[in-house]
């Protein structure tokens, strides 16, 4: 029996082929992993009639940790989002989005090392929308004190655990004085318990500008759900785009690791989609289960292959398939 069993949702589109690449690398990491496969998204809708079957939830509850590939959510109609369903069913409230410069990945900025901590269960995502007249639709933005305290406390705990120096809490309390004011005040309240970590608050539009102008000034950035949805993608754009953007969604009992990008169905079978985002999510997963040394080895092997630039995918100037890129990382791991 393997030391760790991980629930794996390979996802849609190019998700399964990307997972094969990542599994190849994980298998070479020396960590004793086994995988329990589960459905979510469109395949689950076709099979069960809903995006996340109870078997998938039970598998994650049993194994505590899940690797999830991309799933598709129809825009404006159709089935509910598998992502949001999983987040809510497992109370995965902290979306952790590192954005770190990687050698060999050309971006306007170098030496960026940001972590976005996005609240992931409330705000305008509480699914409370109504047509209140035949020409007015409303969506309730729900900000709660317990929900705000726990995400901001998570951000400070994350900063402390990862030896980070500053937490920036983002809001629009100058306009939404009650809802965002609550989030900001929770930030001040939590910060008082972490005197060794610098606390800063910024209005969300200023935060966006600062990220474009001086991203190197920031460290851990904690945001409500909607601002976090937008600005964590901006942060990903600073460090190579969604092809290099991993995400973890963490709760008190369970954790899910995923790429942020979509399922890129037009590239199915072409083996050209860069698996680095899912690979970095897998590295976060290794850290989460306590395999920090293996996580570092895999990360350095990935960075070495990217910095060399010979066996990389087309999005970073190479000509290799994602399988060849994954094999190059495996070779690095074996040589280390």
């Amino acid at each position: 029996m393997a030391k760790y069993t991980i629930t794996v949702i390979p996802g849609e589109g190019t998700g399964p082929e990307i997972w094969e690449c990542v599994q190849m690398i994980l298998d070479a990491s020396g960590v004793d992993l086994s995988y329990e496969y589960a459905d979510a998204g469109l395949p689950a809708v076709e099979k069960y009639g809903y995006p996340v079957p109870p078997e998938t939830i039970e598998s994650i509850k049993k194994n505590k940790v899940c690797m999830k590939g991309p799933t598709t959510t129809p825009v404006g109609f159709g089935h509910k989002s598998a992502n949001v369903t999983l987040r809510k069913a497992l109370d995965l409230y902290a979306n952790v989005r590192p954005a770190r410069s990687i050698p060999g990945v050309k971006t306007p900025w170098q030496n960026i090392d940001l972590v976005g901590i996005r609240e992931n269960t409330e705000d305008s995502y509480a699914a409370i929308e109504h047509w209140v007249s035949d020409e007015v639709a409303q969506c309730l933005k729900v900000i709660t004190r317990p929900g705000s305290l726990r995400i901001i406390d998570y951000a400070f705990k994350y900063a402390r655990a990862h030896n980070r120096k500053k937490v920036t809490v983002v809001h629009k309390a100058n306009i939404m004085k009650i809802t965002d004011g609550l989030f900001l005040n929770c930030g001040r309240e939590v910060a008082a318990h972490y005197p060794n970590i610098e606390f800063q608050d910024l209005i969300v539009d200023n935060m966006a500008m600062q990220l474009a102008l001086k991203p190197y000034l920031y460290d851990v950035i904690c945001l409500p759900n909607l601002y976090g949805d937008i600005l964590t993608d901006l942060m990903a754009g600073l460090t190579g785009g969604l092809g290099f953007a991993p995400g973890a969604i963490i709760g008190d009992n369970y954790a899910m690791f995923e790429a942020v990008h979509g399922s890129t169905p037009k590239y199915i079978g072409m083996k050209r989609v860069n698996p680095s985002a899912v690979l970095q999510a897998a590295i976060m997963m290794l850290e989460h289960i306590g395999e920090k040394e293996a996580a570092q080895r895999v990360y350095h092997a990935m960075c070495a292959v990217l910095a060399e630039g010979k066996k990389v995918t087309a999005d970073v100037g190479g000509t290799c398939t994602n399988e060849e890129y994954a094999k190059a990382i495996v070779e690095r791991l074996k040589a280390a």
Partner: peptide, 11 residues
């Protein structure tokens, strides 16, 4: 009942 944070406001 899901294992989730609930607040004192129920729809």
């Amino acid at each position: 009942t899901p294992e989730a944070l609930c607040v004192n406001w129920w729809r």
